[in-house]
């Protein structure tokens, strides 16, 4: 089952790695490099899953997620969080996240999460 995925990470290597992995599994992937761009893209809608890095300069992933949920966007969101930042996980779920993956992460495990989120 393929889907339209929005991938947001300020780290270009990680963003492109996630994109290439998801594309290799047949998904249609669009990337964004910061929170403001992510919010704009998220509001445009049409996403099946959003993969969202938490730690970004300016608007964090949690801020983006909260703003999206406040505006009624219910797309499943998978957060990418740093290891040892359990508070981010709590805050993420409180803001409406559906899943999280801890960095360093396995791209294969992330793909499995995305597939599960697509239902």
């Amino acid at each position: 089952m393929s889907g339209r995925i929005l991938v947001v990470d300020d780290d270009r290597d990680i963003r492109d790695l996630v994109a290439i992995k998801l594309e290799s599994a047949g998904h249609d992937v669009v990337t964004r490099a910061d929170g403001a761009q992510a919010l704009e893209a998220g509001m445009e809608g049409g996403w099946d899953v959003i993969v969202l890095d938490v730690m970004m300069p300016g608007m964090s992933g949690i801020d983006v997620l909260r703003a999206l949920r406040d505006r009624g966007v219910e797309t499943p969101v998978i957060l990418l969080t740093a290891r040892g930042q359990e508070k981010d996980i709590e805050a993420g779920f409180a803001a409406g996240a559906d899943h999280y993956v801890t960095k360093p992460f396995s791209p294969r495990a992330l793909l499995a999460r995305v597939t599960a989120a697509l239902g």
Binding site: D13, I14, L17, K103, P104, S106, P107
Partner: peptide, 15 residues
């Protein structure tokens, strides 16, 4: 250099 930086963030088969 690219590999070294990426290894900071990935695990498993990709690493």
């Amino acid at each position: 250099r690219t590999v070294f930086m990426m290894l900071q963030d990935v695990t498993g088969e990709a690493a």
